[in-house]
Amino acid sequence: HNLTITQGKLFFHYNPKLCLSEIHKMEEVSGTKGRQERNDIALKTNGDQASCENELLKFSYIRTSFDKILLRWEPYWPPDFRDLLGFMLFYKEAPYQNVTEFDGQDACGSNSWTVVDIDPPLRSNDPKSQNHPGWLMRGLKPWTQYAIFVKTLVTFSDERRTYGAKSDIIYVQTDATNPSVPLDPISVSNSSSQIILKWKPPSDPNGNITHYLVFWERQAEDSELFELDYCLKGLKLPSRTWSPPFESEDSQKHNQSEYEDSAGECCSCPKTDSQILKELEESSFRKTFEDYLHNVVFVPRKTSSGTGAEDPRPSRKRRSLGDVGNVTVAVPTVAAFPNTSSTSVPTSPEEHRPFEKVVNKESLVISGLRHFTGYRIELQACNQDTPEERCSVAAYVSARTMPEAKADDIVGPVTHEIFENNVVHLMWQEPKEPNGLIVLYEVSYRRYGDEELHLCVSRKHFALERGCRLRGLSPGNYSVRIRATSLAGNGSWTEPTYFYVTDYLDVPSNIA
């Protein structure tokens, strides 16, 4: 807008934040220059609390790290170098490059900038070799853009010569660093050979998330399962459950009422301010606690030095998902009996873990797994792929695949051998790939016309006998059925096997 004052003059007093240069501009645009008398524009009460600059400061050096910015700028000295009290560095987070010096300023003089007072450097006698002032900004957020400017702080001049310097606002972004852990990993099994893994992005990506790394490792069953005799009275049979499938998407929606109208769909109840505040506090606490764990609990591995020492970490090797089922080394339970199943799973520490690289999504279907087997899954978020990966501390989750139908069934015939004193040795093959492992066998036998009897055969007993022995049988026709019990439950009964026990007292003698 054009402003013209045809008559009258300007009068400025007691404006401590208004620089004289701005008042002189007002004289020019209003056409009143030359009308004012000496005392109409006070030299001592206008701009006496402001830094009124008329020179431009330029930054000469900028260096960044993930949490620091090192700045240096060209030296500046007023005509009387004693008038320079120091520099004021202003900075704040700036997602967009549209910041002005006066953003967030209120009537009390406060604003949204963080201000650092910096002492002037030592003055050199040689004007050509003056030290460049600077400042190291610490405690910054990774991968965050900051708006920065600097200006001088000078003393009051009796001659009211307006001098000083100020830089333009520059924008500097800190470097990326390792992201925080992925949030809320959930693993479920939808079949006997697959596990579905879902997660949420890290709360602090500290860069642009480029991919996720998912490692999985087959877990050995508890050692007590191999040692305890679950045929003993009072000892509860062990059981394991597989990871249940995901709930429906509708039930997972946030901010939804727990109660549904019987007449149909209901609208979600909005969260109160107290609920939102509580969630923010919980989120802040979780982030602080995660940072504490990362800094205190997890110790970084030592990389190899120039002395030739090897990095103890196993090298990563990509495998196809079809090879995942046989990740671990199978060892027989008892070496003397080769027909026992290889369900003991000690994992070799030198073995390469299978892994998958996930790009542009937060889910993965891990296939080719062994049925009813526990897996430990390790999830890392990465925001750099080359020249070397920059990934987060791992988040861990466990899951067990679903049982395989008929995996616990005894394959092959049940054979028998009759000894003296009416002892019958029953023999059968253990299931080759049971659900988890076989903890015991149930032997059901009966003599024709009598009630059915049951015998429990422990895992250890089966390994020693290759089956079991029935003792003290009365003469007669017998039928026997056997079924295995694994961590997933009972298998199917075998087809009945028949044998006849004679009275050993009636056996004919070869003595003449």
Rank of each mutant, 00 (worst) to 15 (best):
S203G: 09
D204L: 07
D204M: 01
P205F: 15
N206Y: 05
N206P: 03
G207D: 02
N208G: 14
I209S: 04
T210S: 04
T210Q: 14
H211Q: 04
F215S: 05
F215E: 02
W216E: 03
E217V: 02
R218I: 06
Q219N: 11
A220C: 15
E221L: 15
D222L: 11
S223Q: 07
S223K: 09
E224Y: 12
L225P: 07
F226E: 13
F226G: 04
F226T: 13
E227C: 13
Y230P: 03
C231L: 01
C231Y: 02
L232H: 11
L232Q: 13
K233I: 05
G234I: 15
G234K: 06
G234T: 07
L235K: 11
L235N: 08
L237C: 10
R240F: 07
T241A: 11
T241V: 11
W242Y: 06
W242R: 09
W242C: 01
S243W: 09
P244N: 11
P245Y: 08
P245R: 09
E247K: 09
E247R: 11
E247Y: 11
S248V: 07
D250W: 08
Q252I: 08
Q256V: 13
Q256D: 12
S257C: 06
S257R: 07
Y259T: 13
E260K: 02
E260T: 11
D261L: 10
S262E: 02
S262F: 14
S262H: 10
G264I: 11
G264F: 05
G264W: 13
C266W: 05
C266M: 03
C269F: 05
P270T: 13
P270I: 07
K271T: 13
D273A: 10
S274C: 15
Q275V: 10
Q275R: 12
L277M: 03
L277T: 03
K278P: 08
K278D: 11
E279F: 12
L280I: 08
L280S: 03
L280N: 15
E282T: 09
E282P: 14
E282F: 15
E282C: 06
S284W: 15
F285L: 07
F285T: 04
R286P: 04
R286T: 11
R286K: 03
K287R: 06
K287T: 13
E290Q: 06
D291P: 04
N295Y: 15
N295K: 10
N295G: 04
V296N: 11
V296Y: 09
P300T: 09
K302N: 13
K302I: 09
T303P: 11
S304F: 13
S304P: 10
G306S: 06
T307D: 13
G308Y: 00
G308M: 14
G308W: 10
G308L: 09
A309P: 07
A309G: 13
P312V: 04
R313A: 14
R313I: 12
R313K: 13
R313P: 13
R313T: 06
P314I: 00
S315I: 10
R316G: 03
R318N: 04
L321H: 07
G322H: 08
G322S: 11
D323Q: 15
V324Y: 05
V324M: 14
V324A: 08
G325C: 14
G325A: 15
T328K: 12
V329P: 14
V329F: 15
A330M: 06
A335D: 14
A335M: 13
A336D: 12
P338N: 11
P338W: 09
N339D: 15
T340W: 13
S341A: 13
S342C: 03
T343S: 05
T343I: 10
T343C: 04
T343E: 10
S344Q: 10
V345S: 12
P346A: 15
S348T: 03
E351S: 14
H352L: 11
R353E: 06
R353Y: 05
P354A: 03
P354D: 12
F355A: 11
K357V: 13
V358W: 15
V359G: 08
V359D: 01
N360F: 05
S363H: 14
S363F: 12
S363G: 11
S367M: 02
S367W: 09
G368C: 10
L369W: 01
L369E: 01
F372I: 02
Y375R: 00
R376A: 07
I377H: 06
I377Q: 02
L379Q: 01
Q380T: 14
N383H: 05
Q384K: 01
T386E: 12
E388I: 01
E389L: 08
E389M: 13
R390F: 05
R390V: 05
R390A: 14
C391M: 14
S392M: 01
S392R: 01
V393I: 04
A394K: 06
A394S: 06
A394T: 13
A395W: 15
Y396A: 09
Y396Q: 12
V397A: 15
S398C: 12
A399Q: 13
A399C: 13
R400V: 10
R400F: 08
R400P: 02
T401R: 00
T401I: 12
M402Q: 15
M402R: 09
P403Y: 09
E404K: 08
K406P: 06
K406R: 07
A407P: 03
D408P: 00
D408I: 00
P413M: 15
V414A: 07
H416G: 07
H416A: 08
E417R: 10
I418S: 09
F419W: 15
F419K: 14
N421Y: 13
N421A: 08
N421V: 04
V424R: 06
H425G: 03
M427A: 04
Q429S: 12
E430S: 15
P431F: 01
P431W: 00
K432E: 15
E433W: 06
L437I: 03
L437H: 03
L437D: 13
I438D: 03
I438V: 13
V439Y: 13
L440K: 09
Y441L: 01
Y441N: 02
E442K: 08
S444N: 00
S444A: 14
Y445I: 02
Y445H: 14
Y445K: 01
Y448F: 14
E451Q: 14
E451L: 11
E452C: 14
H454P: 06
H454T: 08
C456S: 02
V457I: 03
S458A: 10
R459Y: 05
R459V: 13
K460W: 06
K460P: 11
K460S: 11
H461R: 10
F462D: 02
A463E: 03
A463T: 12
G467K: 08
G467T: 05
L470G: 00
G472E: 07
S474I: 09
S474W: 12
S474H: 09
G476S: 01
Y478W: 08
S479F: 09
S479W: 13
R481T: 06
R481G: 02
I482M: 03
R483H: 13
T485Y: 13
S486D: 02
S486W: 00
S486E: 00
L487D: 03
L487S: 11
L487P: 08
A488Y: 10
W493A: 00
T494D: 00
T494W: 00
P496F: 10
P496S: 05
P496G: 00
T497E: 12
T497K: 06
Y498W: 08
Y498E: 14
F499R: 01
Y500N: 12
Y500I: 12
T502D: 02
Y504F: 05
L505F: 11
D506F: 15
V507R: 15
V507L: 02
P508I: 05
N510P: 09
N510S: 06
